[in-house]
């Protein structure tokens, strides 16, 4: 049921954008003019995502962030903008965005409760004090639906919700240099040192549909070239409901900076 709805939505959007694009190709000026008369504008954009998936606020178990790398994450987006009223001051944006979100981070934890399930169903449960290195990367089809406000002919602000469908995801890493208390803080203590590390991979626990809100600004630098900046803030945990290994929710928060072509 859910999957069908997603497919339908994506197809509809692809058709909409595709039609606009195709018509622009064949008969650009009349098509765009006709659209503009109806209050429709089209734009394609490319950008990069900088940010991370983070618990908010940081739980007390995280004592220090040692390293962080945003990694290279791109986005490609097509938007349809419908302006309303005579002044065309307010409008609605529907988009389709193909994007990566990722990060690499290293942190030191204290008494961090975790449970890892091994390939053969083995359970390793306990409290970890020491280093944790995490790599996160997801590929998404995102659909933003935003309210737009034209400040002046060249400048636009927009804000609204988006929904992201994950097509692939990786959340993995390892723990090292520290110790585990088996089961709970009073359990057997086991030291990890040197090359001793325990790897984990929670990729299968990432949720496939995420929601969030975004807000940004779009500036028409030249007739067709736009520059934009958007903050996307996930409001859903990146993990499935019921996934308790990571005891806190993690939210994807990214700044997207890009340029675009406005038809």
């Amino acid at each position: 049921m859910k999957r069908t709805t997603i497919t339908l939505l994506l197809t509809a959007l692809a058709l909409l954008l595709g039609c606009g694009g195709a018509r622009a190709q064949q008969d650009r000026t009349p098509g765009i003019i006709r659209s503009a008369l109806m209050g429709l504008e089209y734009e394609v954009r490319a950008g990069i995502n900088i940010g991370g998936a983070s618990p908010l606020p940081l739980p007390a178990e995280i004592r220090r962030i040692d390293s962080y790398s945003p990694t290279f994450c791109f986005s490609l987006e097509g938007d349809v903008i419908r302006w309303f009223g005579e002044k065309r001051r307010w409008g609605l944006i529907l988009g389709l965005r193909l994007e990566n979100k990722g990060m690499q981070a290293g942190a030191r934890t204290k008494n961090y409760g975790m449970e890892i399930i091994g390939d053969g169903g083995e359970r390793l449960k306990g409290n970890w004090t020491g280093m944790v290195r995490t790599k996160y990367r997801g590929t998404f089809f995102s659909i933003p639906l935003l309210a737009a406000c034209r400040i002046n002919p060249r400048l636009r602000l927009h804000a609204g919700p988006y929904v992201s469908f994950q097509s692939s995801g990786d959340f993995s890493g390892h723990v090292y240099d520290g110790y585990l208390r088996e089961n709970d803080p009073t359990g057997n203590k086991v030291v990890f040192e040197g090359d001793r590390r325990a790897t984990y991979d929670f990729s299968d626990e990432l949720r496939s549909v995420q929601w969030g809100v975004q807000a940004g600004v779009n500036w028409k630098a030249f007739k067709h070239l736009t520059l934009s900046g958007d903050l996307t803030w996930g409001v859903t945990d990146i993990f499935k409901k019921g996934f308790r290994t990571i005891s806190f929710d993690m939210y994807p928060i990214y700044l997207n900076i890009g340029f675009g072509y406005a038809f």
Binding site: L56, L58, N127, I253
Partner: peptide, 27 residues
Amino acid sequence: LTTSLLFAACAALAATSCIKEEAPNAE
């Protein structure tokens, strides 16, 4: 505008992602 947007984003992140005070020992 970009600067203020960036600033707002960073401020929002900073406000929410401070390292909390260390919890008392559980061991």
